[in-house]
Design a protein around this nucleic acid. Structure first.
Lengths: 203, 203
DNA sequence: TGTACATCAGTGAACGCGCGTTCACTGATGTAC
DNA sequence: TGTACATCAGTGAACGCGCGTTCACTGATGTAC
């Protein structure tokens, strides 16, 4: 039995919207499975009936897309925070990489939806994600490496970014999908992997 | 309407079993979605009623696990074939890497199930997969590099294998999940990525 | 200050659907005599 | 060679379930007069 909710005042309908988004995120974390997150489950966990979800989201896809969107912003924010105040550009990249992997490990089901499942968005929306979000932050970091003269010359910035991303995503997504593999000591292994991902790009 | 099936002779019941497995694989490829592959869909595509699936597989999980198992063998076989007859150990690794990425691109939904979804098997079964399948082939290749004195010294074989795998898996799984990203020219990019994944491990 | 009314956040009940699975069965095939 | 019978591959119908979504509604809240 969910706790009795007091209904929102007139004009405060948006409050429930936020609550629904928060509950959906929480459910994703708790169940660790996108499929377990149904409209009905979200409604019950929010303490509300299913139809009232539809007052705030046109359908399930829109709800999940918005949760996704929030996560992209969170990831972006995590990277920004991780590299803030670090002067050495290579250290900055390492910090970003570390933050990225940790984000995946701490929000596995979100990471799954964002990067491992079929896309919720269109190709255009994805170009947007690349252009403005965490990936752009990664490119900024690489640009700083280049500007400091620390990069192997001749490489294209975007291509370099995709290589680095792919490599770090590889570790992150394997950790998310197969946490029970006989992984070596994780902290050390992650650091090592970040080094290996960056090293070939450095002068 | 599926084509009328002639029922198997007595003792030939196993024939349908094979047919079901083949249909399930085909459905995975055609629909590109694990969720679209239901017992009922498999039955219909095989030209048979749902209950007869249960004569051959105890439940849906077992059916999917066996499809998975077949794919692991196929991948293993693809790697073996790719590196057969190549003497240069580094070239051998490149060939394996290429075969791996191609396998993912050609069987995206299988790749998804094998490496991107929650595991169907137990941790023990996975250790087995690592010990005997495609990953073992990768370790063999790396061992050959070491034996030829071409590897950076001091690295642990298994750890090295996990790094290389993670990096190549990163590219493969991104290609599988987000084929519509603005990828650079793919052939060149893949070769480049394999180089980058191997290079830091070479002397 | 009191009352009639419009607003609108949220409800209760139901829709049709496809799912995995179970059950009692049918009827062709091969075998024993 | 003929017939009764056991085998067993596959069927038809149904089960209960949870799903996304729709619909007509209720009733507390704020507003106009």
């Amino acid at each position: 039995m969910p706790p009795a909710r007091t209904r929102a005042r007139r004009g405060d309908g948006e409050l429930l919207r936020e609550e629904i988004l928060a509950t959906t995120e929480r459910l994703l974390i708790e169940t660790g499975s996108e499929e377990a997150v149904s409209i009905r489950a979200v409604a019950e966990a929010t303490g509300v009936t299913p139809p009232s979800i539809y007052r705030h989201f046109t359908d399930k896809t829109h709800l999940l897309f918005e949760v996704c969107d929030r996560q992209f912003r969170l990831l972006h924010h995590a990277l920004e925070e991780a590299c803030a105040g670090i002067d050495d550009p290579v250290e900055g990249m390492r910090a970003r990489g570390n933050a990225y992997v940790r984000f995946g490990m701490e929000h596995p089901e979100h990471y799954r939806i964002m990067f491992m499942g079929p896309s919720y968005g269109t190709p255009e929306q994805w170009e947007d994600v690349l252009a403005t979000g965490a990936f752009a932050n990664l490119l900024d970091g690489l640009q700083a490496v280049i500007d400091a003269g620390l990069a192997r010359p001749g490489a294209d910035l975007f291509t370099m970014g995709m290589h680095v991303w792919a490599s770090i995503h590889g570790l992150t997504s394997l950790l998310v999908a197969k946490p029970t593999l006989p992984w070596p000591d994780l902290d050390g292994f992650i650091d090592q992997h970040l080094d290996l991902a960056l090293q070939p790009h450095l002068a």
